[in-house]
Amino acid sequence: MELLQLVIGGLANGCIYGLVALGFVLIYKASEGVNFAQGDMMMLGAFVALGFGNADQLGLPFGLAVILAMAVMFCVGWGVERLVVRQIFGQPQFALVILTIALGFVFRFVAGSIWGYTPLVLETPFAGRNLRAGGIVIGLADLVAIGATLGLTGALWLFFSHTRIGLAAQAASQNQMAAYIVGVPVMRINSLIWGLSGAVATVAGVLYATRGAIDPNIGLLGIKAFAAAVIGGMGSLPGALLGGLIIGVVEPIAGRYAPGELAQMSPYIIMLVVLVLRPGGLFSQMQMKKV
């Protein structure tokens, strides 16, 4: 019973990791850039939603606040690509790594100056409500997290497989040069993807906020989500979700049954093991180039 309880809580947590990881993977697939500020975008998204939704701030209804926050963060992601990331197009990959780490600090500073560094609670319609079924207690927030993740993943899948823009994005991610040649606006697609990953990060942030208080440093969760993306194999959307779920489930179980600090380390240990055994992740996208 206890194990089941842990697994359900872990799945909900894992969905949040998975969503942040999804943001990484979207950008990685589109431009092979790694956005180390993804965790901070999640944080900023949660705070923007809080700014729209909480009674002492703008006080809009919860659903509207989340949608507005997603729109705002879409613009933030778009703007970051348009104004900053595009400038360093063609520079080596680590330039973007360092750049996005710095951007993360900027986001943290912005959130800290507007909303302060003390933890705040996002007001949600389903806070603290629980369902009981056969001896286990399931938080409504957990169910919402799992449901929202499933819904969002489905929507993204439909977007990438059934819309013109989605197909163009797939083409650009497979071979940028060839995509240019057949007339795909690669630059604009990249901006769009950054915007999308901002919106996905917002959803993750809101889900995170429904399960506890938020402060500007929750962006550090991004590192764990990163581990999730690597476990799944950077560049695989289902892999990212799976990686997130693995980490989310293992963490509380390790915390319950394994000694001391092992729970804290478990995501990274899993990641290192995966990296050593399968350097490309579980769903590998790497190919050897023949010389």
């Binding site: 790694v34 080596p92 990959q93 680590f94 790594v97 590192i223 990163f226 581990a227 690597v230 950077m234 804290q264 380390m265 990274y268 240990i269 990641m271 290192l272 990296l275 350097p279």
Partner: peptide, 16 residues
Amino acid sequence: MSGIYLAIATLAVFVI
């Protein structure tokens, strides 16, 4: 591992 994976692995080593 190439480029980005090494960066992440070193990050994990750091946390450990």
